[in-house]
Design a protein around this nucleic acid. Sequence first.
RNA 1: GGGCCUGUAGCUCAGUUGGUUAGAGCGCACGGCUGAUAACCGUGAGGUCACAAGUUCAAAUCUUGUCAGGCCCA
Length: 1105
Amino acid sequence: MLKPVPNKLDLPAIDRELLDFWKRERIFEKSVERTGPKGDFVFYDGPPGTNGVPHVGHMMQSALKDLWPRFKTMQGFRVLRKAGWDTHGLPIELTADRELGFKSKREVDAYGVQKYIDYCRQTVFRYKGMWEEAISKIGRFVDLENAYATYQPYYIQSDWWTLKQAWNLELEGEAREQALKLGQSPRYLYRDYRVMAYSPRTGTTLSNFEVAQGYEDVTDLTLYVKFRLKEKQDSHDVYLTAWTTTPWTLLSNLAVAVHPEIEYVTVELLEDCDAGKAGERLILAQARHQALLPFFGKHHIVGHQLGADLAGKKYEPMWEWLPSDHESAMRVVADDYVTALDGTGLVHLAYYGEDDFRILRKNGIPLVLAVDKDGLVADFVKPFAGRWFREEHLDVDILKALKEKGLLIAKEKHTHSYPFDYRTGSPLMYFPRPAWFIRTTALKEMMIEANKLIGWRPEHIRDGRFGNWLENISDWNVTRERYWGSPLPLWVPEDGDLSEAVCVESLAELRSLVERSGNTLPAGFDPHKPQIDEVTLLTKDGRVMRREDFVLDSWFNAGLMPWGQYGFPAEAGSDEQFRAQYPCDFICEGLDQTRGWFYTLLACSCLVAKAQQDDAKKRGDRERARFWNDPRNWSSYRNVICTELVLDHEGRKMSKSKGNVVDPVALFDKFGADPVRWIFYASNPWNAIRFGEEEISDAVRAVILPLWNSYTFFVTYALIDEWRPGQGTVAPTLMDRWIVSEYHRLIEKVTVSLEDFDVASAAGAISRFLDLLTNWYIRRSRRRFWKSDSDTDKATAYATLYEVLTGLVYALAPFLPFLSEHVYQNLVRGLNPDAPASVHLAAFPMANPALRDEALEARMERVFEAVTLARALRQERNLRVRQPLTSVVWVVPDQSTEAELAPFLQIMADELNVKSVKLRHDDRDLVTRSATANFKVLGKRVGSRMPKVAKAVAAMTDEQIQAVEGGGRFRFEEFELGLDDIQIRRSEKPGLALRSDGFMTVALDTELTPELEAEGMAREIVHHIQNLRKQSGFDIADRIALEVQAHSPSLEAAVLRYKDYICKETLALDFELKSAVTGTTLDANGHTFTLAVRRANRTTNKTEA
RNA sequence: GGGCCUGUAGCUCAGUUGGUUAGAGCGCACGGCUGAUAACCGUGAGGUCACAAGUUCAAAUCUUGUCAGGCCCA
C-alpha cells in the first residue's frame, strides 16, 4: 500500500532514516557482493591526506566519485569502491614538528626517532572520524571498512616491489652510454645528486613549499668578475665577464654559461679603468653594454658574436684548487636559461643551484664543492678554509683575492630576496644532496603514447597542461631525507660500492637475506625507521651493508595505488584482485593533480608495464605480454575528471583567514545531502563552482521541490482513488504519449551524457524534464485526476504519470540517492514488495526508441510557442486567463501541419480558456512579410556576391514573397531563388489583437459577450470558494454547503446560470442563493457578493459522486 | 619569464562543423494563481559577445596581438 505523504519535506530526517536503512540492509555491500552481468566498472579512489579536516572541495569530489559508480551499478556493472588514506609524508611530519616544538632534524634525532615515528603514526588518523562522517553523510557508497592506508606493511611491500621493477630495468644503447658517462648506474632506479634547499645549520632539506615561506630581502655584496680565456686574440688578453650575488660560489666556479642566441660584443679597453688595463678585451652581452659603461674608460667594440660561437672556449681556472686540465670544465657552455636582463649576460656556474647543476651535469663536468654541507669552506680551499659561507668578511676577502689576481671588475651593494629556514631563520643554500631517481625520461615516449588514449575532462588537459608536463619531464627524485615514510629498500656496502647494492622487493626477501647474513628479523618487525635501519646485511664476501637512509616521496606511494591497495604481489590473493581491477575506468581528482597523482599514477604504471613486458618476454608468457604491450593498459586510468575549486557565494576562494570556510557536515544536517550534491552536478566540475546557502536553495527549487511536488500530487490522488498499478483500461492520449516520449528522450540524454562524463548536460536534461512534467503535463492533466468518474482516461493518466515518475526516480538515483530512495520505497516498493530492496539495487531505465515520437515533441514545442503568443496578447489586453473568451485563431503558414496540429487545439483551448481554437494557414490579411537571405544555403551558391543578393532579398515585396511561398521563383540577376533560399519573417499589421513570432501568428477575439462575462463571474466565485475551503482547513475531498448572496442582479443571474458548475467545481452538495448571508464579502469582476461555506454532513475519502 | 584556462544580460553560466532574431536560470518590473507549492506560473525589459587587427561573401565562433582575471611551473 502507498503511504500518505507528510505535508512537510524534511530532507535531513530522510537522510538519517535512509543512512540507517542502507546500513541495516547492507545495500552497498549487496551491490558489490553480487556479480555484475556486464562485468566490472573499475574506480580508483585517490587517497586524501587525513591530518586535516574535510572541506567542501572534498565533498564535490565525493559527490562525483559517487555518481558514476552508482550509475554503472544500476546499469549492471559491479563497482568495487575501496577507500584509501594517504598516511605518509611531509604534512604529517610538519604537524608533529609543530606540536613537539621541533625546528630541525637534529632535534628530532635528539628526541629519538622511534618516539617521533610513533608520534607521527598517532597523528595520521586524528581526523579520520570526521572524514568518515562527511563521506557517509553526503551519501557516498564506499568501502571504508577495508580502506587501504599507505603506511601499512602490505602497502610498503608494493612500494618495494615497484622499485625493484625499476632496479631490474636498464637503459640500453646511447642512453646507457650517456648515463655511464655521467657516472650513473644505467638502472631505472639510480643514485645521483639533486640540488635542494638545505639548511646547513640544522642539517635539514626543505621542500619548495617550505622554502616559499622563508624569503627575505637582504643586501649583499655582489661582484662583477672576469675569467681569462686561454687563447689570446691578436696578442690581447680576452676575458669573459660575469656577475654574481653570491661571491662564495665563485670558489667553486666550473664553467661560464651564455645563451646561444644572444648577441655578445668584445670590448677593447683603451685606457686603464675599473674593468681592467688598457689593451684587455672583455666579452659581454650587447644588451648589457650600456648598463656596464660606468666600469669602462675609453673603449671600443672590436667584435660581435652569438653565444653559440663562444661555446667551447676554454678559460683559466679562477683558483688554484680548481681542475685546470679537465676535458670539459673551465669552458663556455650554452644554455637557454641565460638571460641578458641583468649582470653581463654571462653566468658563472657552480654546483649550488638547480640550473647550474643541470647544465654542469649535462656537460659532464665533475662535482667540486668548495663549501661543504655544513656551510663551511672546505679544507682544500686553503686561504678560506673553515669559514662560514654567509660570513660578511668572506665575501670581502674573496673580493680582495680577486683584485690581486686582476680578475675583479667591480663590486656593488645589491638588495635581493634570499631564502631562510622559515623555522629557525638561518640561511639556506642550494646544495647537491644525494638522492635516488626513477628514469622517467626513459619512460617518456610510453607516457606520451598512453596519455593520448586517456579520456580527459576537460579535454584540453591532455595536450595542454599534462601533455606539456610530459614533454618537459626530468627524472623523478623519489627519495626524501625525512623520517615518516616508506623506507627505501636499498642496502649498500659501507664503502659505498653501489655495484654490490641490493634492492629488496618484499619482507619475505628481506627476511631471507637477513637470515643468510646470520641474523633474524625481530618479531612484529615494523618496516619503518628506525627499526629498518637496524637491519644490516652482508655481501657475499662478508662486507657489512647498511640501508640507504631515505624514505620515499609520498607521491610515489600514491602513484602505485592500483596495486598497492591490494599489497600486490606479496599479499595472498592480490594477484587476482589486481588483475581484475586494472586498469580503472574512472578517477576524479583536483586539477592540481596533473603534477601530482595523475602524473605519478601514469609514471608508475608505465614503469610496471615496461618491466612486465620484459619479464613476460623472458618467461615466454604470451598472454601477459599481449596485455602489457597494449598501450591501452599503460595508463592505470582510462578516464579522468579534473575538478576546479569550490568558491564561496561571492566567488572568493574559501580560506580560514577569510572566515568563509563551510563545514560540510553542518550543511548536510541543515539542508540534507541531495541539494548539496546537485550543485556539484549542475555545472561541470572543471569550472570553479560557487557555493553557498543561496545556491543550495536554488538547487532545492530547481529539482528537489518539483520532484517532491509531483510525487505528493500523485500519492494524494492515488490514495483517494485507491489506485493500483495495472488497474483499469489504458488508452494514452496525445498528452500521455508526449510525456512518455519526452521521458525516453530524457533517459537517452542522461545515459549518453553520463557515459561521456558530462554531468552538467545530464543535470540540465533532468531540470528541463521536471519543468515539462510539472508545468505542462501535470498542470494540463490535473482534471483527469480530480474528476469523479473512474474511467479509462483517468486510469490512463494514473498509469502514465506512474510510469514516468517512477522512471524518473530511477534515473535520479545516482544524483539524489536519498530523495529518490525515499520516493522509491513508497511508490515502487509500497505497491510491489517484490521490487528490489533499494532503488540503488534496481536497474537504470533503458531508453526505448519505439516510444519516442520526435514529431510529437516538435509539435508540442509549437504549441508552447503559440500559447506564449496568446498569453502575451491576453496580458497586453488586460484579459486575465480566468475570463473565458470565444476564440483564438492560430495561423501556421505551413500547409502540411494542419492535420498534425489539429489534435492539439483542445489542449490550447483549455490552457488559454477559450471556447475554440481555429487553425488557419493563410495569414495574408493579418501580417506583412519580409525576407532575409538564407545565408547558409545561399552563401555556398553565390559566394562573394552574397551582399548584393542579400540586399535584393531584403527588398522583396510582400507579393513577391507570397509568390515564392506559392512555389514561384524570385529572379535576381542570374540567380533564381526558391523557398529554401530565403527566410520569411512576418510582422503584425497594426490595430489587430494579434501577435507573430515571425513564423506563426496568433489572433485573439477580445469581444466580451454577456454570456462570457457571466461565465467569468462564475469562475471568480469558484476561485473565491476554493480559497475559503482552504482557509477553513477542509480536506480536498470534503463536501461543502454553500450560501451565497449576490449584491447585483447581473451577478445573481450569473450565479443561477452556473450553479451546477460552481457546485461541481467546489464539491458543494448544498447551494442556497439567499437575500442575506452572514459570511465573507468578496468581489467578482467588480460585483460584490457574500459567501458562507461549511462542511456538509457527508464526509468521504472518495471523489465519486 | 614560460605553459594552460577564462572573459557573452545586473549576477551565474549555455552557445554544435563560421550563416544574420545570441539562449537559460537567478535578480528586476508588471500581471496572474492558491485543491501538487518551505510556493508557483506567465509576460516584459535587459547584450557593440573584453579590446584591436586579420582571414572570409559571412566571426561570439577561426588566426594574431593587447588588456584583465585564474591556475600551474620557473
